[in-house]
């Protein structure tokens, strides 16, 4: 996505093209950069995302959950459950709908397999995303009891984005990152790029078996 954004900057962000990218991102379609059929096949063999294992030092900031309760983010994170973490915002029309769509698919899959994990989505537009707005967003995307949304001060959200290396200078430069961890103390698996729900579920599976 960042590659396209860069190109769009240089070409004056041609409206139709950006619209198409937005729609494609919205429907979670994986775009293929290719001219000839050969190139399509070559590209398709490469994974469209990167995966790395990392440790992050997370600051203990106070955040507001979608139910309006003020909570310690670190306590929420370290409650013992496996965690799947994304950074999104309610009015985002680029990469967040895709991330949230993936979270919703992952939630369905985990429920079906009777597995427990804590799905956590942190707002990167916290001044606009009040707990009430997050609750509405959660309902809209069918979030169940194990999927929470967090907002707080701009500083607190920035601190978390920086801690997980997802801060890209502005919410409009936001990239597609999903972080997951099997339990407190374990390193994080970070997947980044054009993700599909199935790929994320598969990655999560490798994590849980460890």
């Amino acid at each position: 996505m960042s590659y396209f954004n860069q190109t769009l900057d240089l070409t004056g962000r041609w409206l139709a093209l950006s619209t198409i990218i937005f729609i494609a991102a919205f429907f979670g379609v994986r775009p293929v950069l290719a001219e000839e059929p050969m190139a399509v096949e070559q590209k398709a063999e490469e994974p469209a995302f990167t995966r790395v294992t990392s440790s992050y030092k997370v600051p203990d900031v106070a955040m507001l959950r979608q139910d309006g309760k003020k909570v310690s983010f670190l306590k929420e994170l370290d409650d013992g459950r496996p965690v799947i973490l994304t950074f999104v915002f309610v009015s985002c029309s680029a990469i967040c709908p895709m991330l949230t769509h993936i979270m919703s698919k992952v939630q369905t899959k985990l429920d079906k397999d009777n597995q427990k994990a804590h799905l956590m989505s942190v707002s990167i537009d916290p001044e606009s995303d009040t707990p009430a707005k997050l609750l509405e967003y959660a309902k809209k995307h069918g979030a169940g009891p194990d999927w929470d949304f967090y907002t707080g001060t701009r500083e607190a959200s920035l601190a978390l984005q920086k801690a997980f290396n997802t801060y890209r200078g502005d919410k409009m430069n936001h990239t597609s990152v999903i972080l997951m961890r099997s339990k407190p103390g374990q390193p994080w698996l970070r997947v980044e790029g054009f993700l599909s729900p199935d790929a994320v579920i598969e990655e999560y599976g490798t994590l849980s078996r460890k």
């Binding site: 396209f4 190109t7 070409t11 093209l17 198409i20 990218i21 729609i23 494609a24 429907f27 379609v29 775009p31 293929v32 950069l33 290719a34 001219e35 399509v40």
Partner: peptide
């Protein structure tokens, strides 16, 4: 142009 992605919509 190759910059134009293909989307299976």
């Amino acid at each position: 142009s190759p910059l134009m992605p293909h989307y299976a919509l």
